[in-house]
Each structure stands twice: as C-alpha cells, then as structure tokens.
Amino acid sequence: MCHEIAHIEVRTPMDQILYEVTDGIAAITLNRPEAANAQTMALLDELDAAWTRAAEDDEVRVIVLRANGKHFSAGHDLKDRWPEPKDLTLEWINNTEARRYLGYSLRWRNVPKPSIAAVQGKCIAAGLMLCWPCDLIVAAENAEFSDPVVRMGIGGVEYHGHTWELGARKAKEILFTGRALTAGEAERVGMVNRVVPLGELDVAARELAERIARMPAFGLRQAKRAVNQTLDVQGFYSALQSAFDIHQTGHGNALSVDGYPVLTRLDEMKEHIKQA
C-alpha cells in the first residue's frame, strides 16, 4: 500500500543544528564541523528540539540524522563549561547526565517514527549516543566507532548500549582496549545496516528514507513499537538504567580522587581524540 507524500520544505538554522523537511523526510544535521561536531550542552538541547519537532510534525514520515564535515561526532565537547570544582557535586552530574545524555537518547530511540543515522568519519563516545538511538545506521566506508571512556576511569558512555549493539564479547573488547570498530566490523555484528562509499552516504541514506516513507505510517509505528518493546522485555531498558548507575560510580570515584570528573585523565583522553 502506497501513500502520496506531500512536498514541503522547511529550513531552520539554529546555532549548532540544521533542520530541513522535504517530501516527508526530516533531515537533522549536526553543524559544528570545525569542532568535529563535538557536543555542547547547547547542541544537545537544539538536537532534542529538532527531534521533538520532527516527532510532532504529521508531515514527517522518516527522520534522518546526519553531520556536516569530516566526522560524525567526536563525542562530548570537553571544553564545554561545567561548574567550578568547588561547586560540583555528584547530584549535579547525575541530574545533568540523566536528562541530557541518557534521557535524550532514550527519548530519541522511542520517537514513534523510523529514523536513520548517516555516519562518516569518527563517531567517538557520545557520538554513539546519537546514532545508536536511531532505528537504522548507514555508514560510510571510512566510519569508525569507539568508546574510549574507560581511559577516564568510567565504564563507558551513559547510554550503555554496547552489549545490545555488539554482543557481549565484542563489547568488552571495544571497552577494554578503547580501539575503534570499523564500518565493516560494525556491519558484520549487525550494528550497521549497510556500508557505502563516502561520496554516496547522503544519497544512500536518502534513498532508504524515501523507500520507508512510502510505507503506511501506522504500520511503521507498530513495527517499531513491536521491536523496541521486544528489546525492553528482554531487559534493554532496565539494563541501561543499571549501567547508568554504574557510570555514576565512576564520577563518584573521580570526585573523591581528583575532585573534578572531567579532569580525570583528561590529557590522555584529549590525546586519544586527537590521534583519532
């Protein structure tokens, strides 16, 4: 069954996110190419607003998340301002990360419309928390996925989907070593749906979105709900909540040792990202 899709086009530039709707497909674009699309708090708030806008727009049938520049995302912007060490508490960290990190990612995962992430270059740490909530991932051949957060004395990013995305042993390998997973490896373990040449990434993601957009919207919503709820019955949601609590113990340890969790092995972390 096919449904005609009305043509509309909306361009709304924000500071760090671009938003456009064409033929029922919302394109949300990370737009900090000069910083490898590192995520500030402001970027995450704008990104959440864009997801919400797409979710609430009845003309939008499919959401595509993409990024300008060489890299999809270098993760959290380590220069983004946190409170001064004397004012920082574990309560502040927990509240902030529960809302903007884990909370946003779970909300995007549960938007009742199909979503596709188009990933090129580096996707580091919190970059995973942008693409993993999407239903499908199309990766350029040069895409690499990594979570080196163990270098900071923390067991992985806040949206701890590693085991679900990679399987237990591959998840442990990536976390224990901090090495990047290639696009080909990611496709073989089922984390990525397809790998395409870099120059074809946007076209491939768009063509996939157009094919999905021709399906009945209610059927798509039901299919997504059925798969997501199956994962939740298997323990996905509870596991992520438990892993988030484990993540907070890493911050607590850093506070007790260094007094400032972002500074725990920060130089080592910066060097890893630079080398990536």
Rank of each mutant, 00 (worst) to 15 (best):
T96I: 06
R151N: 11
M152Q: 15
W92N: 06
G161I: 08
L65H: 03
F145Y: 07
P133D: 06
L78F: 12
E97M: 12
K170G: 02
E173Y: 05
E141D: 14
T96N: 12
I116H: 07
T182C: 00
E144D: 02
G178H: 01
N68P: 08
G155P: 11
L88E: 09
A98L: 11
N142I: 08
R169N: 13
R66I: 04
R66D: 12
F145D: 00
L175M: 13
T177I: 01
Y159S: 03
N110S: 09
F176P: 04
L90C: 08
R169G: 08
F72N: 02
Y159D: 01
D80E: 10
V157D: 08
P112Y: 09
G153H: 00
R109G: 04
W164S: 03
P114H: 09
E84Q: 13
F176M: 15
R151Q: 10
G178N: 01
R179C: 08
A67L: 00
N94L: 08
A98D: 10
V111G: 07
L181G: 00
N95W: 09
K86S: 15
C134G: 03
T177A: 03
T163G: 11
V157C: 12
D80C: 12
C123A: 10
K122T: 09
V149P: 02
M129E: 14
S115R: 09
G75Q: 11
E173I: 04
D77V: 10
M129D: 14
E144R: 11
T163N: 11
K79E: 15
G167E: 01
H162P: 02
T182D: 00
K79F: 15
N94C: 10
T89Y: 01
G156D: 02
A168W: 11
A74P: 07
L175T: 10
R169Q: 14
G103I: 02
S105E: 00
R66K: 13
R99L: 10
I137C: 12
T182L: 02
R66M: 08
E173Q: 09
Y104F: 14
R179F: 08
W108A: 15
A125S: 15
L106F: 07
C131I: 06
D135E: 07
